[in-house]
Design a protein around this nucleic acid. Sequence first.
DNA 1: ACCCGTCCTGGAAGCGTTTGCGGTCAGAGA
DNA 2: TCTCTGACCGCAAACGCTTCCAGGACGGGT
Lengths: 335, 335
Amino acid sequence: MNLADVARRAGVSSATASRALSHHPHVAAATRERVWRAARELEYVASPDATGLARGTTGRVAVVVPHLARWWFGAALEGLSGALRAAGLDLLLYRLGDSVDRQTFFDELPARRRADAVVLLGFGVDERERERLDRIGVGIVAAGTRVGSHPSVSIDEYAAGRQAMDHLLHLGHRRIGMIVAADPEFDLAQPAGRSGAYRTALADAGIRPDPDLTATVTWSPECGARAMSELLGLADPPTAVYAHSDEIALGALRTLRRAGYRVPEDVSVIGIDDHPLAAITDLSTVAQPAAEQGELAARLVLAGLAGEPVEPLVTVPTRLVIRGTSGRPPGRGAS
Amino acid sequence: MNLADVARRAGVSSATASRALSHHPHVAAATRERVWRAARELEYVASPDATGLARGTTGRVAVVVPHLARWWFGAALEGLSGALRAAGLDLLLYRLGDSVDRQTFFDELPARRRADAVVLLGFGVDERERERLDRIGVGIVAAGTRVGSHPSVSIDEYAAGRQAMDHLLHLGHRRIGMIVAADPEFDLAQPAGRSGAYRTALADAGIRPDPDLTATVTWSPECGARAMSELLGLADPPTAVYAHSDEIALGALRTLRRAGYRVPEDVSVIGIDDHPLAAITDLSTVAQPAAEQGELAARLVLAGLAGEPVEPLVTVPTRLVIRGTSGRPPGRGAS
DNA sequence: ACCCGTCCTGGAAGCGTTTGCGGTCAGAGA
DNA sequence: TCTCTGACCGCAAACGCTTCCAGGACGGGT
């Protein structure tokens, strides 16, 4: 069961056994083979605790997420876990459900000494938290957002927003609503870029933004539905709606259909994400590769661990996906 | 940084420091206080590796999942992680993406010696795998499925299926289609109960099942859409469809709408899960508490670790949620 | 035949905790 | 005042692995 047992069975010292098993040079081929055979016969597995103690490294990386049930997080985590597993690293998952969890996490830093690196998945941290985080003493990588000057991988939020907005503008829409997806507990950092795109896109098209056309809600389909109701209640409702996420957009869609509006004949809708349900709902959107972002984050971690230089800011491309919920505004007929 | 440093600063031996920090009895109150203060000042965090080595326990729980991006898994994992965190246990995540991952996982048992318990989230294992699993040497708990005689928490798949089917039958449907959600890689174990419910419900209603009315697909909305096309292509298409999951049902819904069928006037649809998008899509379904299942699984783990007797089979209730996609069959008018 | 590298291997010292065992010391009972 | 009983505390041995350091064997060059 232990290294000593393997060594005994192979007739060598535990030092040699250790070297043989971890592919060190300077071990005779025959010896190496004997040790490996003994290990196999005994079904030997090294104790990671002992290894960690001796080597000063844990073989684990901590991943911190605010949510798990939302599509983006699950998908990103899939990419991340796959790449880490391939590299033989274990994944320690910390979910910070609410501000209490969050507070204690940054106060106590439970991940300390338990991982060789930390990945922040999809949420921003404030100044104080970043300062705490630095005390954790290991490399930090962010995915889906930028965190200070740490290496990070994400989409260009602004560009993604522009793709959505420009699409609506090209279709001829002038009165465009926006549903902002914010999170009361977690600064997702995405809203800024996505909202900025809204404003500048309008400005570039020579349209003065109407503050009434912006609704801010928390991240859930129900809220998207409510926000849409608000927008429809305006004296002069929008002919198109740009939602910060597909989940929100789907909620908005529901409200529109319920209220008897035709989509896209009366109102166009576009989201961001390319959620799996967007395809079957025929929702126009801006696709972002979630799993790939997770995977790239893992690569940054690996590079950092290997002491290689790491690309500080990786940006993955987004892609406009035009489906059935976006069309020309009413009263303009198809070309 | 180390225990020795804390001990030195508090003017005691590291043995005493250790006892004081882990709330052992037979430590003078004053001493304990001094040690704690020193620890706080030094921001001391015990090395889990060293602790694990000395104590023979890891403080970690391995969680094995086949998917992450699907709602149920994310939600269950949320419940699980919350409860484990509250108990001070770390969560080690192993995602088995495909049969290759799966094979190597069961061959090499990487979780061995790295966790005090293993939770199998939402997938069944075959005989060989179970036999391998037992060699892992720690407690095993299953959630969302049953695994041998290990403690497990899940819904009553059969009962859930009956709730859905009986609802459709009560509405007067006689020709009911079923879309089975299977997984080529993972035996989800759910199909059996859910399909069984279909057959016995029909039998109890005196209806002979028509094999053409059953479509088996893998678990994704697109497949649900395709399966629905198949059913609609039948000479005598169903007036209602019972889908094994909401995701499938949503796909089916899309096909129906595209094909110009009205829901529920022409065709009724019901799923299982109560996916967050089911509410906004107005999909009738059978709700199952995903997060709660995860949380209960964590409790089983905790009980097992504490040496308490653990309930072997926990069943959580499901609930029929009638929304807008289920109604009376055509040609029978509202009562 | 001798010396000197080169390879391989073993001894042993950590890595940071926990914990069994024994020692010290103060207070209580006689 | 003397012993005895506990409460506290420290010593040192694990826990299972890695790695530095040095020793032994062996072959080739002189």
